[in-house]
Design a protein around this nucleic acid. Sequence first.
DNA 1: ATGGCTGTTATCCG
DNA 2: CCGGATAACAGCCA
Length: 251
Amino acid sequence: MAEAELAMGVVGGVFGPVTRRAKYLLFPLHRDGPPESTVTLIGHLGMTGRIGIQSAGVPLPKHTAVSFDLGGEVWVFEDTRYFGRLTLDSSPLETLGPEPLAKSFTAEAFARALGSSSQAIKVRLMDQRVVAGVGNIYASEALFRAGISPLKKTSSLTAGEVVRLRDSVREVLQEAVDAGSTLPADGAEMTEGLYYYGAPESSAESPYVKRLWVYDRAGQPCRICGAAIRREVQAARSTFYCPGCQRGSEG
DNA sequence: ATGGCTGTTATCCG
DNA sequence: CCGGATAACAGCCA
């Protein structure tokens, strides 16, 4: 039923420039009139989703959730774990907090959004209503960069810590954007704590390497102080931190 | 091979 | 209102 609605909404539409809001991909679909109209197809890749275009006649990937026949080519949303979403319903966007890379994401705005919550700062940082787009890897990485323990209560952060965390979130995300991702591209090798992003297939250049400081490095030495990185579970997600570099309130 | 882990989020419970 | 647990699913790794 939802399937039929989606089909009704998109058939005949022409893709416009793709944009993004937090972890959501926004695909404008324009129809020439009359009546003229534009709807926005909203996608979320979940943990394992991928969207791409392939030639007609090529078999669809094993876990194809949605595909659109473009005539000659096929638009494909594949998603191994089926955690992703593709919808015309914009309501998921309504509760999103500020974009961390926007100018308006000031330390003051961040402090206001954080509020005086008793939640652990790492859990709060992943709340998409507080800041939109920070996921599990970058939450740990940003807190390491800011030197703040993920276990620290939000309300116990000093003003200085909020400033540092804001800056760290922005830096960590911007670096990842510049690198193209933190996660391995198809066929890329992956070793402990090192996530490779493969160069474009057309390029002979070596893969760009993004080095993570704490994520997935439990038991391994901190690259700064040598202390063993710890793993903790918060809100059912793994958190990684350095007990030497990330003080504050410990835990 | 069995269990525990994985880039997310919505929902349910106390 | 809060926070924690669970569910959705497939695959990989020890």
